[in-house]
Amino acid sequence: MEKGKIISIEDRIPKLKKQRKRKTNRRLVSIISLFFLIVITIVYFQSPLSRVQQIDVIGNHFLSKAEVIEKSEIHEGSSVWRVNKQQAAEQLKRDPKIKEAAVTFSFPNKLVIKVEEQDKLAYLSKGKSFYPVLDNGTVLKTAPTQTLDELPVLHGFKEGKMLDKMMKSLRDLPEEITNSISEIYYDPKKTDSYHIQLFMNDGFEVSASLKTFSEKMVYYPSIVSQLDPNIKGVVDIEVGSYFRAYDAKTSDQEEQPLPDQ
């Protein structure tokens, strides 16, 4: 059997010394690195670099950047580590125009405020002026607009219960149906204080009650598909469903019952 190679202690001592030296050097580098890290951290906290020097705002349309920053109660010059990001987000969500908000930190001294605003679903007509209405019923009163998107225009509504109910109904409808509505009039009757009258972009008129509007209006495309597009009139979905032509002479019936949806 071949004998194993024998290494003397004298030969191993230089290798052991090198290993100890490497370990010592690594330990020294770690200590020096930690020391410099502590020094840099202390300098950072004591220097203007730890103060908020930039605030970016993302997602705002109805509120200006200055308004968002003001509502967050974050101020430039404050310590970035003393800013309560969660509290700032909660402050922002107290504004009825804001649905969600979040505040994040970007090294070394920048804060980013991201907001998600409520959706604009309609316009409120007041005289010759039109004010955007958000899906939670908030009316933007900053400045009336002259250019309207393809959204319903509301007439006769005031801020409060009926407007909130109207906006909730619109929010519950598919977007394609909401976009097919031209105007909505609040038209209360003795028999129904929730009565509304709609004028559609396709030329038809709809008579409905806010109590059941959203659940019945989803069938509007199916209802009009059964009607002659050349004979315009009123689709009544207030009680049951039937169609009444504007000019009875052009129709076989003055009132045409529609199949239950």
Rank of each mutant, 00 (worst) to 15 (best):
S78N: 11
K168E: 08
M162N: 08
K158Y: 02
I6T: 04
I181C: 14
E150K: 13
G77L: 04
S222W: 01
S33I: 07
T142R: 09
T212L: 12
P188A: 06
I31K: 13
V52H: 09
Q146Y: 03
N84G: 04
K168G: 10
H195Y: 12
K128M: 07
T142C: 02
E255Q: 11
D95V: 01
Q87M: 07
Y185P: 02
S78L: 09
I177N: 14
A143I: 00
E215Q: 15
I113S: 12
I6V: 06
E205A: 12
E73C: 08
V139R: 06
S50G: 05
S33Q: 08
M217H: 05
R20H: 02
I69D: 07
E159C: 02
Q197S: 15
A88R: 01
Q53H: 09
V39N: 12
K190P: 03
P229H: 05
R26N: 15
L151W: 01
A143T: 04
S50Q: 05
R12H: 03
L148I: 03
N136K: 11
S182L: 03
S33G: 12
L170W: 03
L16M: 08
F45Q: 13
D164A: 11
G240L: 02
E215M: 10
T138V: 04
G77Y: 06
Y123G: 02
V239G: 14
K71N: 13
I7M: 11
V234R: 13
I40M: 15
V133H: 11
E238N: 15
E254Q: 06
D95I: 00
S125V: 02
V234S: 12
A102C: 05
F157W: 00
